[in-house]
Measured scan of single mutants.
Amino acid sequence: DVPLPAGWEMAKTSSGQRYFLNHIDQTTTWQDPR
């Protein structure tokens, strides 16, 4: 597995969808940043 870039975290919604948190610029995205 390729690790997420620095500052990123993967999370899941209550319905189980994956999303990605960027802690550096305080954004979220559905797109995997890798």
Rank of each mutant, 00 (worst) to 15 (best):
D1A: 15
D1N: 13
D1E: 14
D1Y: 13
D1H: 12
D1G: 15
D1V: 15
V2G: 15
V2L: 15
V2F: 13
V2A: 14
V2I: 13
V2D: 15
P3S: 14
P3L: 12
P3T: 13
P3A: 13
P3R: 14
P3Q: 13
L4V: 08
L4R: 04
L4Q: 05
L4P: 05
L4M: 12
P5Q: 07
P5S: 06
P5T: 06
P5L: 06
P5R: 05
P5A: 07
A6D: 10
A6P: 12
A6V: 11
A6T: 13
A6G: 10
A6S: 11
G7V: 02
G7A: 06
G7C: 07
G7R: 08
G7S: 06
G7D: 05
W8S: 03
W8L: 03
W8C: 02
W8R: 04
W8G: 02
E9V: 04
E9K: 06
E9G: 15
E9Q: 12
E9A: 14
E9D: 13
M10R: 10
M10K: 13
M10T: 11
M10L: 10
M10I: 08
M10V: 11
A11G: 08
A11P: 02
A11V: 03
A11T: 07
A11S: 10
A11D: 06
K12T: 10
K12I: 08
K12E: 10
K12Q: 10
K12R: 11
K12N: 09
T13S: 08
T13I: 07
T13P: 03
T13A: 09
T13N: 07
S14G: 12
S14C: 05
S14I: 12
S14R: 14
S14N: 12
S14T: 12
S15A: 13
S15P: 05
S15Y: 15
S15T: 11
S15F: 13
S15C: 07
G16D: 07
G16V: 02
G16C: 06
G16S: 06
G16R: 07
G16A: 05
Q17H: 11
Q17R: 14
Q17P: 04
Q17E: 09
Q17K: 04
Q17L: 08
R18G: 06
R18C: 08
R18L: 11
R18H: 12
R18S: 11
R18P: 14
Y19N: 02
Y19H: 03
Y19C: 01
Y19S: 01
Y19D: 01
Y19F: 04
F20Y: 12
F20S: 01
F20V: 03
F20I: 02
F20C: 01
F20L: 02
L21Q: 06
L21V: 10
L21P: 03
L21M: 09
L21R: 09
N22K: 05
N22T: 02
N22I: 00
N22Y: 03
N22D: 06
N22H: 04
N22S: 08
H23Q: 00
H23R: 03
H23Y: 00
H23D: 00
H23P: 01
H23N: 04
H23L: 00
I24S: 10
I24F: 09
I24V: 10
I24M: 11
I24T: 11
I24L: 11
I24N: 14
D25A: 15
D25V: 12
D25G: 13
D25E: 14
D25N: 15
D25H: 14
D25Y: 12
Q26K: 15
Q26E: 05
Q26R: 15
Q26L: 04
Q26H: 09
Q26P: 02
T27A: 08
T27S: 10
T27I: 09
T27P: 01
T27N: 09
T28I: 00
T28N: 02
T28A: 00
T28P: 00
T28S: 07
T29A: 06
T29K: 04
T29R: 07
T29P: 03
T29M: 05
T29S: 09
W30G: 00
W30R: 00
W30S: 00
W30C: 01
W30L: 00
Q31E: 07
Q31H: 14
Q31K: 08
Q31L: 08
Q31P: 01
Q31R: 15
D32H: 09
D32N: 08
D32E: 05
D32A: 10
D32V: 09
D32G: 05
D32Y: 09
P33A: 01
P33R: 05
P33Q: 03
P33L: 00
P33S: 02
P33T: 01
R34S: 04
R34P: 01
R34H: 04
R34G: 03
R34L: 02
R34C: 03
